[in-house]
Nucleic acid binder design. Structure first.
Length: 507
RNA sequence: GCUCCUAUCGUCUAGUGGUUAGGACAUCAGCUUCUCAAGCUGGUAACACCGGUUCGACUCCGGUUAGGAGCACCA
């Protein structure tokens, strides 16, 4: 073993990258960065039945999206050989044979039914279910015979009865009694290794110094340690991370929760937010600082500050953090990020280098799109929300009830008067950049609102009598950006059209 | 059932024998305000329980209770 810090994550490609795996990756990555070590990505695809190349792609894509890079692993040559277990079969075979020769492992011909019955009987007795060692003393001839007959068999590892102690960087000393474990299956045959065995071999072969993984692996650790000892391997240092929990405090599962990073990305969560949020789940800097970029985390991270108890996944906090990073974006970048969602919602489409409104086919300039996004930058938490919030900019016909045009105790006649007053003010303003802009529109309309209130005998500073019906007429919504921003973006013609429509609706 | 792990506001957490138990999200109120946000100000809200140790325990020890994870020819 070198003195170098070498860590890894070892996902199995049996599904989309899970948020728990992503957080393990983050913590390993940060630990490596902090200690100038190496972060390895190893693909654990020993289970060919369940593994699929498309999930390897997903793991790679999503880790890259998060900004978590590896120094050794897929796409990158390494001196430790291939990083997919299915390409390392000869390595495992060598060690399986070694264990077999040294009588530390043996063939087992018990049927699954037999094993199931054994387990049941032990459970009923209140004992820990474990293999009873039936095939341990089979004679050489008998084994040879059965193997030649192609009887189905597996290879078991002989568990030494002893106390196994190891130090966990997060939890301290952990002790297991190996007599409770029973001889585990380490391979189905010489070419089909199983998890606990493959992990022990790979961690050794890849010179992994620290194994940082989820708490759900604690009970695998003694098995792996025993295999390491039998093979005369060094023992890596362990650190078991607290689990990410669902609101009911059980392990986050695909069945009841959104767990894949891909889904969060598609919902419009930013990688910065995911990283910041995942880091805070089970770790804190010991200060009151909570907002972190990946690189600031790499400086401040330490395993000593990792929590012991599991952490409940709080989506509201993720939303808050995501909103924070949305507000941090430049408007150019944020618009770029939002565009796909507007396209997906069939509001706009891309054409020869520009964009057009899908419904009317009219061109919409990038600067206009940026104005729209800017008007909503403070108003959304997930990118996917942008379409519903801003759809009225791209629609000809607004669909709303007359009732929502009403501000406080206004009668229908009052609403009409209000809209007519707005119309009068706005038609006097020229559609030119120097006049028809947010600032000037605001000035004119606020002055107008005061005049309108005096005229109608309303309370003077209650601008809603003019502004509310106007804003609803332009947006069709009870909640939206200001009428000034909207009118500015819509332009004079559409603004006046929408006021006319509203007047029709009141009548 | 067995093994292991865990226990501070609803949630994420600070705290390492003496604190008005701090922060963040959420929540509530106020300010701002045409609305919704954002922002600012303030409020409500926690040491699971029982024993020790100690002049003194959220903090150390033991137990109880509760929760979780693991117990495959999956990883």
């Amino acid at each position: 073993m070198t003195n170098k810090i070498r860590v890894r994550i070892a996902p199995s490609p049996t599904g989309a990258l899970h948020i728990g795996t992503a957080r393990s990756a983050l913590f390993n990555y940060l630990f490596a960065k902090k200690n100038k070590g190496v972060f390895v990505l190893r693909i654990e695809d020993t289970d060919l039945e369940r593994s699929d190349l498309k999930w390897v792609q997903d793991i790679i894509e999503e880790l890259k999206w998060l900004g978590i890079g590896w120094q050794e692993g897929p796409d990158i040559d390494g001196k430790y050989g291939p990083y997919k277990q299915s390409q390392r079969l000869d390595i495992y075979e060598k060690y399986i044979k070694k264990l077999l020769n040294e009588k530390k492992a043996y063939y087992c011909f018990c049927s699954e039914d037999e094993l199931e019955a054994m387990r049941q009987e032990q459970m009923n007795r209140g004992a820990a279910p474990r293999y009873n060692g039936k095939c341990l003393s089979l004679s050489k001839e008998k084994i040879k015979n059965l193997l030649e007959k192609n009887s189905s068999s597996v290879i078991r590892f002989k568990i030494q009865n002893k106390k196994i102690k190891f130090t966990d960087l997060i939890r301290g000393e952990i002790e297991f009694d190996s007599s409770l474990i029973g001889d585990i299956v380490i391979a189905k045959d010489l070419n089909t290794p199983l998890y606990n065995f493959a992990v022990a071999v790979d961690d050794y072969e890849m010179e992994i110094s620290h194994v940082i993984r989820g708490e759900d692996h604690i009970s695998n650790t003694p098995k792996q340690i025993l295999i390491q000892e039998a093979l005369d391997f060094y023992q890596p240092i362990y650190a078991h991370l607290p689990l990410i929990l669902a609101p009911d405090r059980t392990k986050l599962s695909k069945r009841h929760n959104v767990v894949s990073i891909k889904d969060y990305r598609e919902q419009g969560y930013l990688p910065e937010a995911m990283i910041n949020f995942m880091a805070l789940l089970g770790w804190n800097p010991g200060t009151e600082k909570e907002m972190f970029t990946l690189s600031s985390l790499a400086k401040e991270f330490s395993l000593e500050k990792v929590q012991k108890p599991g952490a409940v996944f709080n989506i509201k906090k993720l939303d808050f953090i995501n909103g924070f990073y949305i507000r941090e974006k430049t408007i150019e970048r944020l618009t770029e990020l939002c565009l796909p969602y507007l396209i997906l919602a069939k509001l706009i489409e891309e054409y020869s280098g520009g964009y057009k409104i899908l419904e009317t086919g009219e061109e919409i300039l990038l600067v206009t799109l940026q104005k729209i996004i800017k008007a909503y930058q403070l108003r959304f938490k997930k990118l996917s929300e942008i379409a519903e919030l801003t759809d009225f900019f791209f629609k000809e016909k607004l669909d709303y009830k007359k009732e929502i045009l009403r501000w406080q105790e206004m009668g229908d006649k009052d609403i009409k008067d209000s809209l007519l007053a707005s119309e009068k003010i706005l038609s006097k303003i020229n559609q030119s950049a120097s006049e028809w802009n947010n600032k000037n529109l605001e000035e004119e309309l606020i002055n107008g609102a005061e005049r309108f209130n005096i005229e109608k005998g309303y309370q003077e500073n209650n601008r809603g009598f003019l502004l509310w019906p106007l804003r609803v007429a332009l947006s069709g919504k009870q909640a939206s950006a200001s009428p000034f921003e909207i009118a500015d973006i819509l332009g004079k013609e559409k603004t006046l059209q929408r006021i006319k429509k509203a007047l029709e609706i009141v009548s």
